[in-house]
Design a protein around this nucleic acid. Structure first.
Lengths: 242, 242
DNA sequence: CGGAGGTTTGACTGCGCTCAACTGAGGTGG
DNA sequence: CCACCTCAGTTGAGCGCAGTCAAACCTCCG
């Protein structure tokens, strides 16, 4: 007995566009169950052709891919509301792996009904494409970060992005939010070494802009951090939810 | 009088999944005209909410975005068959600019009919999402390249990707294909300086792997180049065409 | 002929990487 | 209950890949 979508914890967050009653009941049919995983558990594997798609309900994870020399690139951090497995669902092959970093609860969809989804509910199909476009937009910014920003700019930028995402999801209290990743995760996300990432985080802490320890991120001066990261704060924009 | 889709030069390329007669006639209704632009012409602007979407029919271009410090990140190179403007079409804001690098012929679609598109032709909606997924997949690889590969690996990787794309589009003869970009374009795509890009290209030429001058790329040893770039050659995969 | 943009080369510099050692918090087993 | 291991974070020393600066060269074009 899985939770009904109408009681989905994400429905209430103002980060997402609310669904109509009709949509909710359709999603309940599409939904095939729930899955909970523990930290470190792989959810999808790079190169795999997974039969299932997910929406992260609670918890956080990571998308990454590994090169033949063992180097790892973190593609993005997974937050509640993120749709997981689009590439497998549509192209039949994941370009990256997804792994849990905390306890996670996932909403499970069957890939076999994916096409049916497009045929019978064009507005939901549109939302999937919307999510894909958001992802593409974001990855463009990441590219510019890794390619053009210095280490301190990149880390400042990343922290601003993460914090804003946390804000929209209501994860921030007293300028603090949970950030259950390792410095290695962040380093691999930005193409930096762990050592340099550590020192750069130290410099930002020294400047009283942020502190991050014990899996808690605290932002002391978001505006100043955004300036260092050469980015502007964007108003909250709602996104669709699957 | 614009060319009918059934005579579209791209329809014949084996890089693309052929459209049914029914799809072709629908696309002809969706198509609002054609546009030709000269090298250097901006097609879409970062941050803009463009009313039109395009498919590149002939010619090549570039997607890029500019930071506040003037640095430029090239997101990707635009080839014939590429769909341009998805972000504007669906989110209302482009995350990057698109600019022609050669004479280009573009197929123009009206954004106002985009939604109609999803509603009346789910298989075409699916194809749009498919294209978005391909783009996301590719950008993950680019991230790994910029973040993890050294300069020589990155350039080798990029040249392999470009060459394979050229092959699938029938642009390659005698191991040569047109590559109408500047070294600065390539440098900005890979997060390298022009100077270092130039020297690295020289090193690859020295190794007899490739040569690139006068806007023509020649690959002498694709397999060896792929090895340097830490990538494997992928069989030709068809993609949808809009 | 002069200017602009792209390519090439050399000299120097520095940001960020590697190597290495140490700390501290858990977790596990003797 | 402590010895031991592992994993994440921290810090210092030294180095190298790639950036910056600068100048020359080339082609195209007005």
């Amino acid at each position: 007995m899985t939770t009904q979508c109408r009681y989905c914890p994400l429905q209430r967050k103002d980060a997402f566009i609310p669904m109509s009653k009709e949509e909710l009941s359709f999603m309940e049919k599409f939904k095939s169950g729930e899955l909970t995983v523990e930290p470190g558990t792989p959810i999808l594997l790079e190169g795999s052709n997974a039969p299932q798609l997910y929406t992260a309900l609670t918890g956080m994870g990571i998308r990454d891919k590994t090169l033949e020399n063992g180097n790892r690139q973190v593609i993005s951090f997974v937050f509640p509301g993120d749709f997981i497995g689009l590439q497998a669902g549509i192209m039949g092959e994941m370009g990256h792996s997804v792994e849990a970093r905390t306890h996670m609860r996932l909403c499970v969809f069957n890939r076999s009904e994916f096409w049916n989804f497009f045929k019978s509910h064009p507005e939901r199909a549109f939302d999937i494409t919307w999510l894909a476009a958001i992802e593409e937009h974001f990855m463009g910014e990441v590219l510019a970060t890794i390619g053009q920003r210095t280490a301190i700019q990149a880390i400042a930028w990343a922290m601003v992005k993460i914090f804003e995402r946390g804000q929209s999801l209501g994860m921030v209290t007293h300028n603090q939010m949970p950030l259950p990743y390792s410095q290695r995760d962040l380093a691999d996300a930005l193409g930096l070494s762990v050592v340099h990432t550590n020192k750069t985080l130290g410099a930002l802490k020294e400047r009283q802009l942020l502190s991050w320890s014990d899996r808690v991120l605290q932002i002391n001066n978001l505006a100043a951090l955004a300036k260092v990261g050469m980015t502007s704060l964007e108003g909250r924009q709602k996104r669709p939810l699957l």
